[in-house]
Design a protein around this nucleic acid. Structure first.
Length: 437
RNA sequence: GGUGAGGUGCCUGAGAGGCCGAAAGGAUCAGUUUGCUAAACUGACGUACGGGAAACUGUACCGAGGGUUCGAAUCCCUCCCUCACCGCCA
């Protein structure tokens, strides 16, 4: 990613909330420390640049005002035939012109630099976010459900997938490469059933379904914060400058880019199913075996645009929705509150939901629910008109409900019996079979 | 891929160098009238960045960037996008 592209994004952008940083410098630094942010010096650089930005703009505005007034005067004089006086004013405009040009260039340079630095600042974590560096520092909020006791000869899901002819990993390697499996027979049907089930559940919870593009332009990728932070993690279609979406969050949230909502339109709730594409550069090895980590996978996403006063309520509600799905599927799970070091660039608070994979004897992340507060809406210019009639940035949230492959993995492993793999009751109307044998 | 037409406010749409941040209509909001609905009338009604305690005020923005000019929505150049028709095609 080169930043020229970013700063060439729509002008007349909102100045990524510098005023907040300016007025809460200490707090910002404190919060960034929780996220283990490596370049705290950026904060003061930003404040300094903002200072000179405002000063420069003030100067420029003053000169422009004079120049505008003169131009107007000339117009009047010309109309009334007072050519001489008009000419004498004209003579003075050269200096203004020069100054306007200089100040304008200076301002543009300052703004560009400011943008470049602002764009590197991650979102500030919520006060409840624990300090910490690694996944081990995440806080376990709750654990739910019974871990099944599998017999000693229980198989991991990739062996079950082979045994029952559900997923062909090698075939995917031939067609595309590692991480692009081919689902077959009841494996394919199980996937489709889960997708439909998740969508139906989301609709019951008030999320209206959207079906969105799987490739997005740069402005969209920037809007939800994938750029510049996750540049290398997205597949890029260079011929047309499109990115393959790493999550439906990107196209769905971008529906509301450059939108000013009415306050009574909040909260906006959408769900959607899409494949997701992730390069996952740098992660190989035993832990990525089978369905554990893929380059392409299916996911049902829920997205909300919420009033800032309500967004943490909404976050809990979304977390409950996800937990409800896991309960109905009969999967043991736990909820984590991510520590500063493990959470994403754009998030203020993230809950991860993990299911217990009984054959692998480990937790697998199947959902991530986040409140981005104004981080995305600031970039998206997603606002609403508040009670005073002023525009205000809305809060955006999203969560997986749910990501398919690890759910499939856990279902296969946890529900294996000597007779075959039992399908959870809630899914049977969708699969039309209750056993994989 | 070829050809043509366009990009103006929430929408439709005028504007063709100064009186244009932008007519008019619609939508929306507030008020008046009305037994209710409808209608009519009156008023309000873009965004951002500055300054100011505030009333208010300065600047910028008519797809984006550059240029001409004392002055650009309007003229010139470059780019992007959209639409229509043809070709190809799920």
């Amino acid at each position: 990613m080169n930043y020229e592209l970013i700063i060439s994004l729509p002008k007349n952008k909102i100045m990524l909330q510098v005023s907040y940083i300016r007025e809460n410098r200490e707090q910002v630094l404190e919060r960034l420390a929780v996220k283990n942010f490596k370049q705290p010096e950026l904060v003061d650089e930003v404040i300094g640049l903002d200072e000179s930005r405002r000063k420069t703009q003030n100067n420029l505005d003053g000169v422009s005002a004079e120049s505008n007034a003169a131009a107007k005067k000339i117009g009047e004089l010309m109309r009334t035939g007072n050519k001489e006086e008009a000419e004498s004013i004209k003579a003075k405009t050269g200096a203004w012109k020069e100054e306007i040009k200089q100040l304008g260039d200076k301002l543009a340079a300052i703004e560009a630099e400011l943008q470049q630095k602002l764009v590197l600042l991650p979102n500030l974590p919520h006060s409840s976010v624990p300090k910490g560096l690694t996944p081990e520092d995440n806080e376990v909020v709750l654990e739910n459900g019974e871990k099944p006791n599998l017999p000693a000869n229980a198989l991991p899901h990739w062996e079950l997938a082979a045994k029952y002819n559900l997923i062909d990993f090698e075939l995917g390697v031939k067609i595309t490469g590692a991480g692009f499996p081919v689902y077959k027979n009841k494996g394919a049907k199980l996937q489709r059933a889960l997708i439909n089930y998740f969508i139906d559940e989301a609709e019951k919870a008030g999320y209206s379904e959207v079906s969105v593009p799987l490739m997005v332009n740069e402005a969209s990728a920037f809007g939800t914060g994938q750029l510049p932070d996750k540049e290398g993690q997205m597949y890029f279609v260079g011929l047309d400058n499109f990115y393959l979406i790493p999550t439906a969050e990107v196209p769905v949230t971008n529906i509301y880019r450059d939108v000013i909502l009415k306050v009574d339109e909040l909260p906006v709730k959408h769900c959607g199913h899409t494949p997701c594409f992730r390069r996952e550069a740098g992660s190989y090895g035993a832990h990525v075996r089978g369905l554990n980590r893929l380059h392409q996978f299916d996911k049902v996403e829920i997205v909300q645009v919420a009033h800032p006063d309500k967004s943490y309520e909404v976050l809990e509600q979304m977390s409950q929705h996800v937990q409800g799905l896991l309960q109905k599927l009969g999967l043991p799970y736990r909820v984590l509150r991510l520590c500063g070091g493990d959470m994403g660039f754009a998030s203020a608070l993230t809950y991860d939901m993990e299911t217990w994979s009984a054959a692998q004897q480990r937790w697998l992340e199947v959902s991530s629910v986040s409140n981005f507060e104004t981080f995305q809406s600031n970039r998206l210019k997603l606002r609403f008109r508040n009670a005073e009639g002023k525009t205000q940035l809305a809060h955006t949230l999203n969560g997986s409900a749910l990501a398919l492959p690890r759910i499939v993995a856990t279902l296969l492993e946890n529900n294996q019996t000597e007779d075959g793999i039992k399908i959870p009751e809630v899914l049977v109307p969708y699969t039309k079979f209750d056993l994989i044998s």
